[in-house]
Design a protein around this nucleic acid. Structure first.
Lengths: 146, 146
DNA sequence: TATTGTTATACTCTATAACTATA
DNA sequence: TATAGTTATAGAGTATAACAATA
């Protein structure tokens, strides 16, 4: 008789459940900075892709433009981004990462790497490297930030 | 000068973003079976851990007991689980996986493995294996289904 | 009085739709 | 008339609180 490969041993199931777990922990920690996960996504995008209009940001993040308003409001209140009205087309708001926003993103990166160490403590060093390399390739293949 | 390791190269960031992406795709596909992700979680738990009371299920899943009511209602309507009042303690509802529920879970597993193949198409076979092995170890370390 | 399940309610996240200003 | 941003509203998912039945 043939036995079916069980769900919990699939890469999809494991990625989904571990991703939710690690996101929950990361969310808890960045709360200390006044940030939510989507805020970090926008900061990451701005560092990688220079100034962007809100609509461009929404498209790159795969979210509704109205959500970018909320996220940009919060980041602006923290001094992490600046909104500059485009003089050539006054409908557009150019979002720019401030120095303070860059420093905040650095603190998020440090937090993530701390979390990496704790979360993967049970892996050997080669396993950790192989894991991160494979995840990096998948991220690139699926259009996620490098 | 020292440069900070960027956020998108962290394992935590990659696990979080890839996990969200793969979960969204999986969610789309199991909708054809009338299932939501948490339903699949409960079915998985019941197959692995035999009959459970709703409270036990809530604890194992890390969700509120009231959510188990909703999930069990939907699964019962699909014929995937049975609720049996415990004769020894009539407050308890024992949740049991039916044959039909087992078949449904098998279809979810097949769906997940199809998704695995598509999602990791850009990896070499050794990379795919190393990835799944490392994820399996992390899942075990963090108390997720085997 | 404590516990299991259920129902009522509220909160978070995010999308869609309506609206304003500019083109 | 079309587009960028904003505001208003709605839906999904999940938690907390109130309640009913049983212990």
């Amino acid at each position: 008789m043939t036995s079916i490969d069980p769900l919990p041993s699939s890469t999809s199931f494991r990625l989904g459940t571990l991703g939710a777990l690690v996101t929950a922990r990361f969310t808890d920690r960045i709360e200390a900075f006044g940030l939510k996960p989507k805020d970090v996504g926008l900061l990451t995008l701005l560092r990688a892709g220079g100034p962007l209009s809100q609509l461009e940001a929404a498209r790159a993040m795969g979210v509704a433009p109205s959500l970018v308003v909320t996220v940009a409001d919060r980041l602006e209140a923290l001094g992490a981004v600046r909104r500059l009205r485009d003089p050539g087309d006054r409908r557009r708001q150019q979002l720019t990462l401030t120095d303070q926003g860059g420093a905040l993103l650095d603190r998020c990166a440090a937090t993530a790497h701390d979390l990496d160490a704790e979360f993967t403590a049970g892996l050997s060093e080669p396993e950790r490297t192989a894991l991160n390399t494979a995840l990096g390739r998948l991220a690139a293949d699926h259009g996620l930030p490098a």
